[in-house]
Write a protein that binds this DNA or RNA. Structure first.
Length: 274
DNA sequence: TTCCAGGTGCATA
DNA sequence: TATGCACATGGA
């Protein structure tokens, strides 16, 4: 990936970087769009993305953080070419989401985000997550940081309900307490199978949410989150099957280490075009 | 009014 | 181990 780091920005070529594809493909919820530009929030950091000729400029006080966040050192052209060669039927999905990059997000924020995502729609997930930031996060000047685990330990089930979390409120309250006793960074040393076992112990985390956490928060490509949209894709293009455990197993056997990438292209094109 | 949304936890057999 | 149901909320 061609990019240049400057003092207050990262300049990146638009040929494999598109903010709409990256932010609206369902992997992150804390972003806003004003006119044509996107603003994205991660932990206590913020970046604005503006188009400048053939490039995008990621305007931020934390250029190095966002180089890693946007996974700019990975060659997505190569990944897409490999997927297309092995699985020609992905052509439309790959073209549609050509500017997607899998974000490297903070594990804690990812866990909280995807607990809220279960049986929920993206607009409402965004609303709840911004409300958590604005009510319990540190004010940064123009925006609010995502609260730390210590800050979130003070939030009660009733508080989450007041923010619109619904029945997930008790999951959140319990999960934060569990997470406060864990060193999440040490989970980076686990195998994907081991990590999966640990994540499933967290209240509100089932297989689908665990897969999203592993893909977006722990950079694991060998998982395939199966939700209502992927189930539709599978029934349309593979076979009529509604057992998500079987669907997941079959898709991981098919796409192996590239499962996470294939999933994201398929999810995005299915959700946007139906 | 009913259905659906990036599903999970729990009781039951 | 497998199945079925309850669970909040808001938009279509």
């Amino acid at each position: 990936m061609k990019y240049q780091i400057q003092k207050d920005r990262v300049v990146v070529s638009s040929d494999e970087f598109n903010p709409k594809d990256i932010l609206e493909c369902g992997q992150i919820f804390c972003y806003k769009k004003d006119d044509k530009d996107y603003v994205v929030y991660s932990q206590d950091k913020m970046a604005k993305i503006v188009k400048n000729g053939k490039n995008y400029e990621i305007l931020t006080k934390n250029p190095e953080y966002f180089v890693n966040f946007f996974d700019l050192d990975t060659n997505y052209t190569q990944i897409k070419e490999q997927l297309l060669k092995e699985y020609p039927y992905l052509k439309n999905a790959l073209n549609y989401g050509a500017g997607i990059r899998i974000l490297k997000q903070d594990p804690f924020e990812t866990i909280i985000s995807f607990i809220i995502s279960s049986n929920n729609n993206i607009k409402r997930i965004q609303k709840i997550l911004f409300a958590i930031r604005e009510n319990y996060g540190t004010k940064m000047g123009g925006y609010f940081a995502f609260p730390t685990i210590q800050q979130m330990l003070k939030i009660t089930e009733q508080d989450y309900k007041n923010l619109g979390a619904g029945y997930r409120a008790k999951y959140l309250e319990c999960a934060v307490r569990q997470l406060s006793k864990i060193d999440l960074m040490s989970y980076n040393n686990l195998s994907t199978a081991e990590l999966n076992v640990e994540l499933l112990k967290i209240m509100g985390v089932g297989q689908k949410v665990a897969d999203c956490i592993m893909l977006f928060g722990f950079n694991r490509g060998d998982v395939f989150p199966v939700d209502t949209w992927i189930e539709k894709v599978y029934c349309t293009y593979f076979e009529d099957e509604h057992d998500r455990v079987k669907i997941r197993k079959n898709l991981i056997n098919t796409f192996k280490q590239n499962s996470g990438y294939a999933q994201q292209y398929l999810f995005y094109s299915q959700r946007e075009n139906s």
